[in-house]
């Protein structure tokens, strides 16, 4: 199921425009991450995807149909949505009821639903009789995620799914999301953690002040310091380090350490420089400099 934005303008009240002409397409089965500073308009964009907000001009197409023509429940069936605050959606007395409620809200509660719920409970290792309000923050977030994906929406939108979670919980959540994606679900994620973005997303869309300022494959977007800087973002450290290694080449008696054109190559670059410098000679000799790479060492050093 594809999501398409065509020159979308949107706002909460007419005086203050929030989105100023946003266009992008998310293809079926993609994993796209949205990055941008606080207030860039990412959450607003997500609200538009599932019709909580309607565009003032332009069109938001879900599977080719404008969101303005779809009913709430029809949209909810197509697009699952996980908000940052799990407490806003938890409303039942037990974990099991909470998961069943997702089906009830869609008017699809049947034997098949019960089977799905039991499956999810097993998959997430929940205790079905736990009181959701007494669970810890990470588990509540997992429960909210579970009740979003239990109804198997073809598209899932995640607004900062890992904020406020410790590393272990974060990995748990992201592993589940990766698993979903591998099984064909389209994933759209807003995330402030650039390391998570680098690790999981296939494509990155950079937003700044209500506009899309850059989009493309993850490694290409993350290594372009100029656009990231324009959007007030800092690339993940792995990019910094590998770009830094690229810059150090002349010091190593002119030996090329590695290229840093993809994230895999970046990792290889680090491995080569740190662990087995002798492998460096086997790396291709051509290494274009990433835009703004000269900043990497400076900023990296300052950190």
């Amino acid at each position: 199921m594809t999501i398409e934005f065509r020159d979308v303008h949107a706002s909460y009240n007419a005086d203050i425009p929030i989105l100023k002409g946003v266009s992008f397409t998310v293809e079926d089965g993609e994993f796209v991450a949205f990055v941008g500073t606080n207030g860039a308009g990412k959450s607003t964009t997500m609200r538009l995807v599932n019709g909580l907000l309607k565009p003032e001009s332009g069109e938001v197409l879900v599977d080719g149909v404008p969101t303005t023509q779809l009913k709430t429940s029809e949209l909810a069936r197509r697009v699952g949505f996980l908000f940052q605050n799990p407490d806003n959606q938890i409303c039942c007395n037990t974990v099991r009821e909470e998961l069943l409620f997702s089906f009830r809200a869609l008017g699809a509660l049947d034997a098949e639903a019960e089977r799905r719920v039991d499956e999810i409970i097993a998959e997430f290792a929940f205790n079905p009789d736990d009181d959701p309000f007494l669970l810890n923050r990470g588990t509540r977030q997992l429960l909210a995620l579970a009740s979003t994906i239990v109804v198997a929406p073809p598209v899932i939108v995640l607004d900062e799914p890992t904020t406020g979670l410790d590393f272990r919980e974060c990995v748990k959540v992201m592993d589940i999301i990766r698993h979903l994606h591998e099984n064909g679900t389209t994933v759209i994620m807003v995330c402030h953690d650039m390391e998570v973005v680098a690790d999981f997303a296939e494509r990155v869309i950079v937003m700044s002040d209500g506009c899309v300022v850059d989009q493309g494959p993850t490694f290409e977007v993350l290594r372009n310091r100029h656009t990231l800087k324009a959007a007030n973002l800092v690339p993940p450290q792995i990019v910094d380090i590998s770009l830094g290694l690229n810059m150090m080449r002349p010091d190593l008696e002119g030996t090329l350490v590695a290229t840093a054109n993809t994230l895999n190559e970046m990792e290889l670059a680090i491995a080569t420089a740190v662990g087995k410098p002798e492998a460096a000679s086997s790396v291709p000799t051509y290494a274009p400099t990433a835009p703004g790479a000269e900043d990497a060492l400076v900023e990296g050093g300052a950190r």
Binding site: R47, N50, L52, K71, T72, S73, A76, R77, V79, G80, F81, F83, N85, D87, N88, Q89, I90, C91, C92, F101, S102, A105, L106, G107, S147, T148
Partner: peptide, 28 residues
């Protein structure tokens, strides 16, 4: 917003259906 995203419709008419909204709305 959270509940709408799950498919709960708040523009329901009829008392019985409105009562059904108490749980997703009032409990949180």
């Amino acid at each position: 917003e959270s509940q709408t995203a799950r498919g709960v419709e708040f523009d329901q008419v009829g008392i019985i259906k409105k009562i059904g909204l108490i749980m997703p709305l009032c409990v949180p």
